[in-house]
Amino acid sequence: MAAVDAPVATVAEVDAPRPRRAWARRLSLWVPAGLTAFVFLACFLGPVVLPIPAPVGGNVLESSLPSFSPGHLLGTDPNGNDILSRILHGGRASLFVAVTVNLIGLAVGGLLGALSAYIGGKVDTVIMRVLDVLIAFPSLVLTLAVAQSLGPSLTNTIFALAFFSIPAVARVARAATLSLRELPFMTAAELAGTPWWRMLLRHIVPNIAPQLITFSMLGMGTVIVIEGALSFLGLGIPAPNPSWGNMISEGQASLSATPDLVIWPSLALFVTVLAFNLLGEALRTHWSGR
């Protein structure tokens, strides 16, 4: 029956949104990748390389300078701290939290999901039911509760966010592993007597990695937004240390008078999240070979 003609597929294929030319496709991967790299470099190297004042302990005489003032490109806040410096240092915290949370999520969630699918049976059912419980939580709500219980700090923020990023990653890993199990090479390896840990590390992990990495790019954006929300509510990175969330929150009070205080960190947040989202999207397209 292999000769079944597929006229419809032929027609549809022809009409599929025109496959973009090679350069356009490369652009849609490299622009967000470049943007992401730029954000990382600016935040981690910028304050070291450029002559930028410290983010805290500013001179009160220089308080509330408007944007584009000499020496303070984006102006200063009411405490006289340089806003550009605070954004870059705040970005460090955000990116550090996002990367750590996603690494923990990938490692724990990925292994949990892959193992769950690989072992199958009762173990799988139990793991999935527990994850269902975690997923049923409005994660921001419980993250708030956790952050409050443990007190606002960088470590606690990471702990709380990582905890709730695990189930989603685990689900993706599980689904990917399940479809992988069907493939002949898995059966072949199993029949060859490969031990389970080797199956997991040599055969499963490399094959589900693209899907997990794509997912975690979107997760980076989410974590940055939620971390911002925690800081915004005063439950994330404690003031006076800068974070985009607490900068936006501080600026809210004088929103009508000095909107700059809100606009700059908001813009930083937006650009960073957009870069991660576009990168995730481009990687998905790239790996699905469309």
Binding site: P7, V8, V11
Partner: peptide
């Protein structure tokens, strides 16, 4: 005709 010989496209 075989797949892709244009028979479907022609009638569509």
């Amino acid at each position: 005709g075989e797949s892709g010989s244009g028979k479907s496209v022609s009638t569509r």
